[in-house]
């Protein structure tokens, strides 16, 4: 009797929620970015999961631990090396991973990523997509919004808190906006993008990384999803921020006034 009751609970509607978390492999936050030949130097540079995406993965895994979600799928679009990022997501607690492989060196822009995600979402029908609000490499902050537009789904961006209502058919999301917080309500399926305050992501430990190697990872190509990944935006130039100019000591007030007038041009 008891076992049977447990079974009924397990298949109740709130347990069927599947969460998709798209993640991006980016140059590590601690690396000093260098521009070589009009491009950001990515050769032999440490890469890791975009920190905002870590927050998204953590939130999805917590939903699973709270039994609000049944399954967490991590997905990435990138070259073969992006698999490391998926392994990190799996080590953090995602159930399975999807790698949409593109050739090394191929640039993929937010619109193309959003189109790939739309194709995947239409096939697999997750009930919730949680993304990082932006990636720390291009800081575009567009993928979530574009995906919501393409799917015509509700979107709650810059989330600092996610709650469920109505037997997990609706979400209440607290968003960070200029000068305050805003709470929005949306029916599922929906798109949420994660802000910094949403949670504190866990560390992918060594034993979990090892276990993650046994979790399922599916590889597909943009062609399988019927999406053209040719970039739609031309990058005209990439440059480093101007170097900081050292300060100077002045001998007298007159010299200071002179420099402010003639060199700095502020008075």
């Amino acid at each position: 009797m008891y076992a049977r009751r447990g079974f009924v609970l397990a298949v109740s509607s709130e347990m069927s929620l599947r969460v998709l978390v798209p993640v991006k492999r980016v140059v590590d936050y601690a690396v000093k970015i260098r521009v070589v030949g009009g491009k950001v130097d990515t050769a032999n540079v440490k890469h890791s999961m975009n920190p905002f995406d870590e927050i998204a993965v953590e939130e999805a895994v917590r939903l699973k631990e709270k039994k609000t979600a049944a399954e967490v799928i991590a997905l990435t679009v990138g070259p073969a090396k992006s698999q490391e990022t998926l392994r990190t997501a799996l080590a953090m607690g995602a159930d399975n991973a999807v790698h949409i492989e593109v050739p090394e060196g191929q640039e993929i822009q937010p619109l193309q990523v959003a189109k790939l995600l739309r194709a995947y979402v239409e096939k697999e029908k997750p009930g919730l997509v949680i993304l990082g609000k932006q990636a720390i490499d291009d800081d575009a902050g567009q993928t979530g919004q574009l995906l919501a537009g393409l799917l015509n789904w509700p979107q709650a961006t810059f989330a600092s808190k996610i709650e469920f209502a109505d037997a997990a058919k609706k979400i209440l999301v607290t968003r960070e906006i200029d000068g305050g917080l805003e709470t929005v309500e949306a029916p599922l399926p929906a798109i949420v993008t994660a802000d910094l305050r949403l949670n504190e992501p866990r560390y992918a430990t060594l034993p979990n990384i090892m276990k993650a190697k046994k979790k399922p990872l599916t590889k597909i190509t943009p062609a399988d999803l019927g999406v053209d990944i040719t970039p739609s935006i031309d990058v005209l130039s990439v440059s480093e921020p101007p170097k900081r100019v050292g300060g100077k000591k002045v001998e007298s007030v007159d010299e200071l006034v002179d420099k402010l007038k003639n060199e700095a041009g502020v008075i």
Binding site: A30, E176, G180, L181, L196
Partner: peptide
């Protein structure tokens, strides 16, 4: 230590102090 290091770097690059103070007060 790793968490704090990353958290601080992210705050330095992505959090506007004035905006953050307002949100903290609200919370």
């Amino acid at each position: 230590l790793w968490f704090l290091r990353k958290y601080r770097a992210m705050r330095r690059n992505y959090v506007d102090e004035e905006q953050d103070a307002k949100i903290r007060a609200l919370l």
